[in-house]
Every structure is written in C-alpha cells, then in structure tokens.
Design a binder for these strands. Structure first.
Lengths: 225, 225
DNA sequence: CAGGATCCACTATTGGATCCCG
DNA sequence: CGGGATCCAATAGTGGATCCTG
C-alpha cells in the first residue's frame, strides 16, 4: 500500500496499466487503499480514482495532465456487456478564459486529448462495482481524421460560445464532440456574457466525447496493434 | 370518379403523381371513390390503394409491376413529423421458388426495385388519416452504390434461406435490406425444407428496405434534381 | 393468399441532471 | 470548485405481429 511512484516513461506507464488488466476494481482498490462502495450511485468516478493511484498519477485536481512528466491524461472508459463504451467521456469544463484561446490548435480540448491513456473498465450495471474488471489499456494520440472530426465540432461550438449563444447549445450538436451540463445539480449557475456582452447567469458546461467516437478510437487502436 | 387510365409514359406518370402532391388522402380518396376510415389501425395500406387508383395502376394483386406497360412499381413512403421515413418498405414475399433464382441479377427483389415511383405521404400519428398530405413523388432506379448495398445483404440472406437456415434469420441482419415476418398473424405457417432437406413449418417472411435506406434514397433523388 | 402496408411493445440511445473527493 | 465520472427519464429506433382488400 506504498504510494505508486510516477512512471518515468510511456513504456513504463503502459506496462504498468497492462499489468493490472484482468484485476477487479475491488482487488485493485485494496492494493491502493481505496474502499469500493457497493452502491455505484455513491461511487461515480471511483474507478478513475483507483486507477490514478494504481498507475502513479500525480494526486489532486490540477489543470495539468495526470502524468505531468509524460504529458499523458488518464481516462477510464466504462464498457457495457457487449464491450462498447456506455457513457460519453468528459474532456474539460468550458470557461470564458478557455475560449479566449480562439483556435483549435491551442484549445484546452486538444491539449487534454493530445496524449491519452485509455483504460477500459467493465461496467455492466448488473455487475457489482467491486467485481468489474479492468481491460487492456491503450495510449492514444488523435490521428488526422480524428483531429479533423473533433476540430469541426469544436470550431462550431467555440463560435457559438464566443458569440454568447451558450444557451442555444444542446447535447445534440457535434458529431464526435458535444457540450453538456457539468454541474453538481441543475440549479448551478455561473456568470457569462450574452450576445450583447451583458453578464447573465448560465449553467456550467463541459466538452464530452460521444460514445460512438471513443468506440471507433478503441477499435482503431486495437486494429493498429 | 371515372377510372384513371394507365399512364402511357414515365413522364405522364410522374406528372400525374406530382399533380396530386399537396392533396390530402381524404380529398384524393373522394376523387377515386375510396372512403378513408378515421381509425388508421383498420386502414393499413389504404394510402397505397388510393394512390394506385389515382395514378392508374393496373388493378388487382399480381406478380407484375403496378404499371405494367412502364415496368414501374408504386411505393408510398410514410413520413414522420420531421420528414423521415417512419416505417420499413415491403419489397416482396420470400418463397422457395423465388430463391431458386440463385443470383441477385435475377432476384425478385431487384426486379421489384428496378424502377420504383416513390410517393411520400405524411404519417405523423397525431394527424388523422384523411388529413395526411401527399408529397412530391420521385422515380427511382438504384444506382451502383445502392445496388451494391442491396446485393451484399441479399446474397447473405439468400444463402441462409437456400441453406435451410431460415429460422436463424432475424430482422437484425442486413444493412439496407432485411427479412421480417409477413403474415396475417404470428401463428401462420408455411412449409419449407430445413438444413437436411426435410420439410418443416416456418412463418411466412418478406424482404423489406430499412427506413434509413429509403431516407438516403429520397435525399439523393431530391439532391439530383 | 399475395399485395397494400402500419402497429406497438420493447430495446437502445441519449443528453440533461447529478454524485463524490480533495 | 475542478476533476473523476455515472445516473436515468425520456426519446428514438426496431423488428415481430398484425390488419384490410381483391
């Protein structure tokens, strides 16, 4: 139960991730000193937190990648009974200052996703949380086509946000990247300027990758091996 | 209320079809002497029958195209509130003798679909049957890509049928063309040989085009204009 | 029965709402 | 709050079952 040190190379990180493949969240949680709740409603995010510890991610919430030295972000992907991603993947919150970076190349989204370690985790809802197994991990950098898809969505959404049209954005927009609420509850509000630059209250939102996209990404990574 | 004569050319048929665009089924039914029931559960197929009469299709059930001289089949396409096909399109029943034609080029499916007049009809379930409007008609012949898609599905399904694997076919198979029950009720049975050539009872089935495919076809036809 | 199709219960998807931890 | 995400009511989709007419 000693803290796992930060990995010093991509290879070390990937090897470590693949070493824990096949373990259950209960087993892995015990290794890193995390008790896995039996009720998953009260345990959103626990899989991600266990894997952070198990792989030696820098602790705490930061505006930096989980593995600072390597510049790699860790993302766990919940898989349904048929092996497909069952949820969208949170990328980052949307803030005005982040949108001040007005081009895709410098966007928080691309920075976050430039290098990602995807760790699939079984998540069939009938399987108790502690019995869900970790799958084979892959290190992803978006290829040209994947970047084109994300960029097209990002540019449209960024324009709407910059134009003060935030309230007209719904989760329907975007082929691979979407904007959805990111808040503790539906009454959360944060200040933002509207179309005329006046301040108004708006619900906190974040960028997410659609499940169909992460599915395609995982399929490519498996095929590339 | 005189019978409408059979059209003598493709142009005449299309002109006639476009002439009735915008009319409701109630109005068109009155023209051809068909009373439109108010309850649509008791009126499956009535839109097709009204349009047959209105456009001068050869009356009666035959193994021939609706417009014999022109070799054109009539298909009405029900559209939902957003303008998309809301149902699959029946193509033809499956019989052993039909499957004896073992190649796609001579298949009943391709013969039926070689030349089709598609007539969209509003079908939002909240709109009373008699108030649903006829849309703009298009004459379709499958292009190379559309034929490739149908052929791929047909060949797989035909093989299964010929091999006596009918019972293993479900509506899930086929990207654009699928096999589904075609019977007055779930107890209907018809004789067919199984894998070993023995006779067994099986439910009558037919080939259908998926809604996503007819949607794409209509979109292409509109774009081509 | 063949030909004209739609019905509708069930499954799959989804996107707005929400939960925990440091 | 920001970062780790999942929940779940509502909608969309689908495919097995069914209805009418000649």
């Amino acid at each position: 139960m000693l803290p796992v040190p930060e990995p010093q190379s991509d290879e070390e990180l990937l090897a470590r991730a693949r070493d824990v493949a096949g373990l259950t969240l209960g087993e892995l949680g015990a290794r890193v000193g995390v008790e896995v709740p039996s009720e998953s409603l009260r345990a959103k995010g626990v899989a991600g937190q266990i894997l952070e510890k198990a792989l030696g991610a820098t602790a705490g919430s930061r505006a930096e990648p989980d593995f600072v030295t390597l510049g790699i972000e860790l993302k766990t992907i919940p898989l349904d009974a048929t092996g497909k991603p069952k949820e969208s993947t949170f990328v980052c919150s949307i803030s005005l200052s982040a949108m001040a970076d007005t081009d895709w190349e410098r966007s928080t989204v691309l920075k976050k996703l430039a290098r990602v370690l995807f760790v699939p985790v079984e998540a069939a809802s009938k399987t108790p949380l502690r019995d869900r197994r970790v799958g084979r991990a892959y290190c992803w950098s978006p290829n040209a086509e994947e970047q084109r898809l994300m960029r097209a969505d990002w540019e449209r959404l960024a324009l709407m946000i910059a134009a003060g049209d935030v309230e007209r954005i719904t989760g329907h927009l975007g082929e691979v990247l979407q904007v959805r609420p990111k808040a503790p509850h539906g009454r959360s509000r944060r200040r933002a300027p509207d179309e005329e630059g006046a301040i108004q209250w708006t619900m906190p939102r974040g960028f997410y990758l659609r499940p169909a996209f992460t599915r395609a990404v995982l399929a490519r990574l498996r095929a590339d091996e």
